[in-house]
Write a protein that binds this DNA or RNA. Structure first.
Lengths: 227, 227
DNA sequence: GGTTGGATTTTACAATTTGTTTACAACATT
DNA sequence: AATGTTGTAAACAAATTGTAAAATCCAACC
């Protein structure tokens, strides 16, 4: 039994999918627009998301992109109407796991669902965790512990930390961090980066005022060192 | 300073872009149609291409596609008029690095240009290390070691050292160093160079008062010798 | 609608670090 | 020796960073 989030605004289709998945023995949650989908996905951490491309408020591609950029690597299968072929490329590029074009038979969908679940649950076994000093991070679960004590990080803090972890040892400019961790349209001042680095130090360093991992490189930026 | 190829057929826009990029200190080449753009791109190998979607002879998407399929992976930023949203998907699919819709502010464009250049040149500069004698420099990590011992250099000292290493054996005038290592707007006195050379000697020479690598050439400048 | 609470961004100023100039002694060249 | 040049410590100036606190934003709830 898996937890499935179905995101679909056409009533007939959503009812059919719900019934179908429940008949297959899954635990189904529904969302009818992109924003709700995004919120529920983060809240429920479903095992699978069935995501229609055309949605009110926020389209499926953006939901997918947003989830990925927030660090959630939940399995996603996209649904699109025929003639939206172009979306396939982008959908996959933005991180969907599979893609199916309407109309499709329910059997076909179920087959793909199982393929995706098989693929991704295989990956799940090899938990993605990183640790440095007394800090352990489970990126999939969005959990950070220091001395086995849970530390609450905001989503921005987590994204920043993730970026650091993915680029150990490198000197990273503030502007690079703004590009990578903040949104593209209206980035804040570079000082905001300093602010957040200070927060990470406060929460994760043994001596925040004498950091060992989040290192300042004067005039250039910051450097994350694991040891 | 980067070489930029601007491909735009509307006169007003192309003049504005040219002026803007030249003001930013870039070396600008213009093209007004797709075929010319393609030829110039291959000929000049610019650091960046600003490519309008709507062009005579061959549209921007085709130019982009053609370049990619010919194996050129120059950074490309596409410009399109509002309402050509669909192009975004296609543009990215065909290999553009970023995309901006008219009308846009020049600041916005510049921000994206810088992001793209950073992304692409970051890949270029990876694992760039230089060394001389017992000194090794890892520019990405901002680390200098003498006999495997870490030496702390400020960013200006590091830039100066890098310049010396890239010009071994040459007699280099103080003014040349001011141009290359200091910023262009308000250069300090030439004596500041002496100051910094002294610092490098102190940190890197075995006998700072009897230097073997950072050699004074009386009345002319300095010379860096490797052995 | 408005309100609340948390996250995020901006601001402001102190602390720190780096960079520049000065001053004078030492040195090189004629 | 006279003159211009260089070495370098120390004083000074400027730029960068740390961080608390204020302002703003935003989503959730009434």
């Amino acid at each position: 039994m898996s937890k499935v989030l179905i995101v679909e605004d056409e009533h007939a289709m959503s009812v059919a999918l719900k019934d179908g998945f429940e008949f297959e023995g899954h635990d189904v949650t529904m969302a009818a627009d992109g924003e709700t989908a995004l919120r529920l996905a983060k809240e429920l951490m479903p095992d699978l998301i069935i995501l229609d491309v055309m949605l009110p408020k926020m389209n499926g591609l953006d939901v997918c992109k947003q989830l990925r950029s927030d660090g959630y690597d939940l399995p996603i299968i996209m649904l699109s109407a025929r003639g939206q072929e172009i979306d396939k490329v982008l959908g996959l590029k933005l991180g969907a796991d599979d893609y199916i074009t309407k109309p499709f038979s329910f059997m076909e969908l179920i087959a793909r669902v199982e393929a995706v679940l098989r693929r991704t649950s295989a990956n799940k076994a090899q938990q993605k965790t990183v640790s440095f000093g007394s800090v352990k991070i489970d990126l999939a679960k969005h959990e950070v512990r220091k001395n086995d004590q849970l530390v609450e990080l905001s989503s921005r803090e987590l994204r920043l930390l993730t970026y650091f972890i993915e680029h150990p040892g490198e000197v990273i400019e503030r502007d690079t961090l703004l590009d990578a961790v903040w949104d593209h349209d209206n980035p804040p001042l570079t000082r905001t980066v300093d602010m957040h680095v200070a927060k990470l130090r406060k929460k994760l360093e043994d001596q925040p005022s004498n950091p060992k991992h989040f290192i300042t490189v004067h005039r250039l930026g910051y450097k994350f060192v694991i040891d």
